[in-house]
Computed example of a mutant assay.
Amino acid sequence: MSSPGLRERKKQKTRWAIQEHAVRLFVEQGYDATTVEQIAEAAEISPSTFFRYFKTKEDVVIQDRYDELMAERIRAAPPELTPLEVVRHAFVESFIAIGPDEVDQALQRARLQLGVPALRMRALDSLQDSIRYLAVPLAERLGRPGDDFRCQAFVGACVGAMINAMMAWVRDGGEVQQVLALIDDALSVIERGP
């Protein structure tokens, strides 16, 4: 897989900067009290530039690069892994790939998603898109069409387990090693039952 070009890297850097300033302001002032104009000013961009990167204020919290990271890792997982091992590999490797600052931001964004009703609803709405997106590379590995129902159902079950892991991670303080253990434990429930 080729690495992104300079233009794409600059766009991603701007996207992350906007998100970083937005999350900081949401934590400092509260989600509802923070305006797009304040986020744009903090990120040193115009409000119209904000909307080129994020369609809504909710999206600046909801959108991330983790689906892309996980899809890449599903495709790159060793061929001998079972579907559950592939998903576990993708989740764990994607989390390990992000740096400490991004882990902290993920924790802050997760807290916002759990604590702000509008964000919680928007996050739930976006889950089905994530499930469909992540089911495609798994279906490809299994020689099935990208919209395979069973692959979507399987990924949906894994995502459901991950939601519980992430909620426990947020509730218990956000230690990186803890989230990796919680991911493993949550996915083991799919494998072995409760």
Rank of each mutant, 00 (worst) to 15 (best):
Q128R: 14
Y31L: 00
A76T: 12
L124D: 09
K10W: 15
A161Q: 00
V61M: 08
G115W: 00
K11D: 14
I163L: 13
M167S: 10
V159E: 08
K10C: 14
D67Q: 07
Q12D: 15
V23T: 15
R111P: 01
L124P: 02
E28M: 09
T34K: 00
P117D: 13
E85R: 04
A17G: 09
L6N: 13
K13N: 10
P47Q: 00
F51P: 05
I62W: 15
K13P: 03
V159N: 06
T56P: 06
L124H: 09
Q63D: 12
A139L: 00
Q177F: 09
D147P: 12
I62Y: 11
E175N: 03
R141I: 05
Q19K: 15
V179I: 08
T14A: 14
V86K: 06
L119H: 10
V87C: 02
C158Y: 00
C158L: 02
G193K: 07
Y66P: 03
V86A: 04
T49E: 10
V155N: 02
I98G: 03
R75H: 11
E93I: 00
F149R: 13
V116M: 02
R109C: 07
T56V: 07
V176M: 06
E191D: 12
L107N: 01
L114V: 02
A71V: 04
A40E: 03
D32E: 15
E44V: 06
A97G: 09
D185M: 06
A71P: 01
V36L: 06
Q19H: 14
A42W: 04
T56D: 07
D67L: 02
R52V: 12
P194C: 05
A43C: 12
V86L: 11
V23P: 09
A71S: 10
